[in-house]
Design a protein around this nucleic acid. Structure first.
Lengths: 253, 253
DNA sequence: TAGTTTGTTCTACTCAGTAGAACGATTGTT
DNA sequence: AACAATCGTTCTACTGAGTAGAACAAACTA
């Protein structure tokens, strides 16, 4: 707390670390978290009983887990997000129209954050939920967003997060990424061929405000087995793009 | 920190108060929160910059607001909730089958917490979102749950939260509540006639585990204007109850 | 331009968070 | 059954960190 990291509350930071650990490991005991975070047992105990009194965590016998109170915060943030409000219905429609998995994403802190996720009748069952963060370069949604961010911002993001390989199809080369982003700008949508998850393909379209800034992206994800017809290469991009256009109209009043 | 409220971390509690204030008031400034919570300006500033560094809040110029990181926690809690996992699809189906608003609720800390909320094609647009808390006695969902809680637990809940009137139709009398809960147990579902919101009626059915404990409830809400036909009095309760039964089957493996 | 009100920085004080040892309670082992 | 090990919890003392208040600069108002 001397020079260049001024005025931070170390105690609150510890509480947040504990919440993070509970999220990462699920239901956990005092001792487990203490070992995990290299804190003293009594310290962790004090924090956890505070969190319990504040109803942020709930105990099951000897273990603690995150409570529904956090869902309240999350639901609130989602509910009042301006893009979610205008895009919610389109995500829903996209899922039921295609029968597949429809997602809505925005960028925050250089990462892609799912704002909504809706499964159609035959949709794959992925572990995607609102608030989940994924690297932008490895998904169709993310590339749709990156393609319309200012290039300095893309530089910053790549510098901060790199281009880690999620599968053997992930783009890991900066030049290759730039080339693909140019293609995305040309044809208006992005494609992701098993770049995040093996066996999964996505088509994502950017949602752009009238001043040219990108608000987010919307996508359809389907298993490779259902992407061989021309339905995937022709119709799906059209459907996704028109959903994006409808959202753009709503967003611009 | 002397006798009977031992080992609480006061500093973390302050951070939580600030998060609560941001949720209650939306985007707020340092001075506003300091006044609101009767804290010193510099204290609030320290906490907020810590929260910003931890990405729990985001600043818009001079104001701070809750960030999408909290959505991550909320989405995680929802996603891993055992009832949500088995009930999600039924809520979805209920919404599209009836075209109305379908909700899923559980009890926590004596309050009703929405776990899922899905709008059908013609559904009313209420400010309901996952994590929102509502008094159990004033809604169909809540009465369906209360009817199957142990009576001592109902006593506790009424004692802690009372029976506040949300509209002029809300049950405010304990004997009246007990009578209605008996009816709910008899016929298997609960009805709410504008008891939370004027103009809105709900039908809620309890979801009961094989050991008899109530896991939650599922409901359909519609505007009074669409509840005059016998469709509402006959079919809707059947549909809701069968959705509850399907969930019970999934919940019991 | 003068007067407010904002967010932020700084400093000193003291209170509260922390570590570590010790306590029962519980579990698993021999 | 008695033991050892590990759990959560309580206690105490120390000191480091959170807090309040004054002072700062920047933005806005009249």
């Amino acid at each position: 707390m001397t020079e260049n990291a001024p005025h931070r509350v170390e105690t609150s930071r510890k509480t947040i670390q504990i919440l993070d650990a509970l999220r990462e490991h699920g239901s956990s005991s005092v001792t487990f978290i203490a070992r995990e975070l290299e804190m003293n047992k009594s310290t962790v105990h004090n924090h956890l009983s505070t969190l319990e009194a504040e109803k942020f965590v709930v105990r099951n016998g000897t273990d603690y887990e995150l409570s529904l109170r956090l869902l309240g915060f999350g639901g609130y943030v989602q509910h009042r997000h301006p893009l979610y409000q205008v895009a919610k219905r389109e995500v829903h429609r996209l899922a039921s129209q295609t029968g597949e998995l429809a997602n809505l994403m925005v960028e925050e802190y250089g990462q892609g954050v799912y704002l909504a996720s809706e499964q159609g009748e035959q949709a794959v069952d992925l572990d995607i939920y609102p608030g989940l963060r994924r690297p932008l370069h490895a998904i169709g949604l993310g590339k749709a967003i990156l393609a319309h961010l200012p290039s300095e911002r893309v530089d910053e993001i790549v510098e901060e997060h790199g281009l880690p390989a999620e599968t053997d199809q992930t783009i890991t080369d900066r030049a290759e990424l730039d080339a693909q982003l140019a293609t995305v700008r040309d044809r208006g949508y992005a494609v992701d061929n098993e770049e995040l998850i093996r066996g999964l393909r996505c088509v994502g379209a950017p949602i752009i405000a009238k001043d040219g800034t990108v608000l987010g992206a919307i996508s359809v994800s389907q298993p490779v087995s259902r992407t061989n017809s021309e339905h995937f290469t022709d119709e799906v991009p059209d459907i996704v793009q028109s959903a994006a256009n409808v959202i753009e109209l709503h967003a611009n009043h």
